[in-house]
Design a protein around this nucleic acid. Sequence first.
DNA 1: CTGAAAGCGCTTACAG
DNA 2: CTGAAAGCGCTTACAG
Lengths: 331, 331
Amino acid sequence: MPKTIYDIAKEANVSIATVSRVFNNSGSVKESTREKIIQIADDLGYHPHAYAQGLASKRKNYIMMLVPVMSNYFFTEILKGAQGVLAKHDIELSIVNIKQELHKLEQVEQILKRKWADGYLLASLHLSEADLQKMERFHVPISLLDDYSPCFDSVSFDNEAGGYMATSYLLKKGFRRIAFISGKSDSIPLTYRVSGYRRALKEFELPYDETLIISGESMDRDGFTERAGYEAMQKVLNGDPVPDAIFCSSDIKALGALKAMDDRKRHLPIVSYDNLSISEYVGLSTIHQPMYDMGFQATKNLLKRINKPDNVKICNQIHTPRLIIRPSSEV
Amino acid sequence: MPKTIYDIAKEANVSIATVSRVFNNSGSVKESTREKIIQIADDLGYHPHAYAQGLASKRKNYIMMLVPVMSNYFFTEILKGAQGVLAKHDIELSIVNIKQELHKLEQVEQILKRKWADGYLLASLHLSEADLQKMERFHVPISLLDDYSPCFDSVSFDNEAGGYMATSYLLKKGFRRIAFISGKSDSIPLTYRVSGYRRALKEFELPYDETLIISGESMDRDGFTERAGYEAMQKVLNGDPVPDAIFCSSDIKALGALKAMDDRKRHLPIVSYDNLSISEYVGLSTIHQPMYDMGFQATKNLLKRINKPDNVKICNQIHTPRLIIRPSSEV
DNA sequence: CTGAAAGCGCTTACAG
DNA sequence: CTGAAAGCGCTTACAG
């Protein structure tokens, strides 16, 4: 039932090679026959089969983006950045969700192996360096986003700087006991944020007290949920003495933390992380990261790598975040 | 460089047919040769090429989900539902973002034509019935989610009932002038919600006043943004007289509306729509829709349709939403 | 249990 | 400007 290149060729009295050429704008085809072929293809509803093209040509004009939990609210911005680049290239993009629970590496390998796409954007996957190195044997273009590796193009954030900025802001306002609402303890970005937090403390000649690093119990989505933030904040408020201020590792958790404070009628200044669009509306001070630009850059890197797999030298970009002050820290 | 089925066959001293059989668990293969082949494939890092398999077998074990703006926060739940079904089937799922700005139909057709997947899940696309009918000529399994059509399997919500529930709840509490914060006026779900709103008014023998249907100016993401909600709420508060209560078409907009009220220090009871996870934490009364179940059902429908394209009769499921009361409506 | 061979729907040198 | 033909990496009757 679906038409093939043969149907079109027969109808137009040309060889399939000619039909192929008009659909690829490759080789020169007489204008009149080109028009005839386009016309016939339209009438018959013909469109080249993606798999046949991919198999025959090695070029798929298709890239895949692998991301954990789609709920990363800032993901929308990354996506827009990617689409900003792709719009002019006639390349399709699809997104594959990598589940947190299972072994991430296996899921990623599973996709790469099957040769679905010309290249892959790995976003916020936070694989270990060792795992990332294993990706090299697939010899497929890969571009990292919100992750760093010396072996791949990457666009990442300076999480240490973010942690430092948030913490030193609170310190400068005179707060001394600053709790850090954390998450899964082996999270790479969180580790860096804690480093920044410690550096700020050190600058103020304050001791690092690890009992101030606090997480909730809920661990779905790596503890990046309102509930986990709520639980963590309850612990904070049970502290003796109660801390002076909070640095929270994500806006979503901060929402939970705010509610915990409301419920206990006890309000501590809080700075969080991500600058989701909702944060402006709940008045949350937070660390902003340029997600759109990241998506844009990472996609550009990938295209470059697809076009010249080896000629381009590895490009590692690091973006510095920005502190945004809103009422939540001005209590 | 990448290995093919021929490399494995040669190494194992068998034909490619045999290798193919072990990778498909089809046909019987002597246990010892099966093991040998698996072993060799592992050593050489062989994995079947998705495109070659798809082209040769017609079966791709791949489905695509087409969705507008990924930012639909409730999308996570739908995705989990879909994954719940797929987990046992060894079928891969990817997500393609359909941009709102451009002609949606063309984008969808572009994907369907290329025969990427065994079937497609169209979620919240809200294409017109006429557009949906055009999809039939691709003869490809399609399952609708948050949309209805007599021509395709679908799982949808009763938006009219949702509008009715929210409105009549406010009416029962004694409020009489109820504003509806809307969005893009041609939105199909919004049209139904307004119908429900009107039905509730009628039951209370109140006139329908279309000046109470209010939208913001911002129209990105079809007006489903905090900003649009903020703008709309400003208009509401400028009303003369100011309405007694608000029915808001989405939680995200309600966040903007709440801020507008805070800024004006004027608090009206509000019920909104979606029950995002954040809503619990900001205390928003809202209409809940069973997103996980929907994702689950729609995916089941799709698999059924893929396996028996014609034998299964079209299944249209409609879910009734549920009102959740929280502080925002209890002012 | 296994192999030879045709076929899936394209692309792309090569030759003219 | 155009065609014949080989090839991309698989699957699947068919035959044994």
